[in-house]
Computed example of a mutant assay.
Amino acid sequence: MQKLFGKVIETKTFSAEEREVSLGRKLQELRELAGMTQSELASRIGASRSAVSRIENRADVSVAALKKFVSGLGASLRIDASFDASSPVTLRIREAFEVEQTSDDQLLFPIFEEEPFRTGRDVVLSIKPQYSAPILDGTKTVELRRRFPVQVPKGTLVYIYSTSPIRALTGTARILGVEKIALAEMWDKYSSVACIERADFDAYFTGLGEGVVIKLGNVHQLARAIGLEELRDRFEFAPPQSFVYANPLLREALKHESSSLPH
């Protein structure tokens, strides 16, 4: 079920014949169900009416365009991968993440979603060494991201995974706050503590008008960096492209292994 403008809309499973109808047509039906004209939606998402019309006449739509379209309707986009409960990867996914068990036979893993952060969970952030090192020495106090949940509770524990060539868990920090702001404002307010060159900043945020600032504090460098091979062997760890919810076993093991880990 999904709530849209105070109305509850039932989700529907379409037959093979119905699935032949283009995605654009389904988006048009959703817009009409919301009682919105193409011009009204265009105004909400900062596009022209003809751009909305083109989306509604396409058989396929990019994820970026789809997200923008549904956000203008007041909805959020969620795309899931559905695994059979007997799949060998299901147990690993369930252990590492909070995922939705829809029945005894099916598990849903979110591929793309804008949902509230899973409270009470630690996260692992993959960070390039040139940015993780200044975090650990206290020079860099914010991490800039194209996308990150803004509802993260203050005090959430972050494990810092330094990517290649280090490829190791190197430290921890606490999230002091998360802010989603326009890129111009982000540069003005945080460039001095982000330890990034303007050219690299512009290249990283290409195509976006705003980004996310993760404010970090209570930083601790691990007494012993834990390399990728050991992380894989002990925790079946796979480095995330951006961030991932931490396996509870990881924190429990590190608590007993390193006196530098904050409690």
Results as ranks from 00 to 15, higher is better:
28 Q>D: 13
43 S>G: 08
77 L>P: 00
96 A>G: 07
61 V>S: 00
84 D>I: 06
135 I>P: 01
30 L>A: 15
143 E>A: 04
213 V>A: 00
119 T>D: 14
154 K>S: 14
48 S>C: 08
200 D>V: 09
149 P>F: 14
127 I>V: 11
247 N>T: 00
64 A>Q: 11
241 Q>F: 07
208 L>G: 00
245 Y>W: 02
92 R>L: 15
225 A>S: 11
238 A>R: 06
97 F>R: 09
126 S>T: 11
263 H>S: 10
154 K>C: 12
188 D>R: 15
235 F>Q: 06
72 G>P: 07
203 A>I: 06
133 A>Y: 03
208 L>T: 01
147 R>S: 14
36 M>I: 14
2 Q>Y: 00
104 D>W: 00
78 R>F: 07
50 S>E: 01
237 F>N: 03
20 E>C: 10
209 G>H: 11
42 A>D: 05
45 I>H: 00
210 E>K: 09
61 V>D: 02
169 L>F: 10
27 L>D: 07
230 E>Y: 02
141 T>C: 02
10 E>F: 04
164 S>N: 10
156 T>R: 09
107 L>Y: 01
77 L>C: 01
106 Q>D: 11
80 D>T: 09
185 E>P: 00
195 C>Y: 06
48 S>Y: 05
123 V>S: 11
251 R>H: 10
70 V>S: 01
81 A>Q: 05
263 H>P: 13
249 L>W: 02
99 V>E: 06
141 T>K: 10
19 R>L: 10
226 I>K: 01
239 P>T: 09
88 P>T: 04
143 E>G: 12
116 P>K: 08
47 A>W: 05
238 A>S: 11
211 G>N: 00
155 G>W: 07
258 S>A: 15
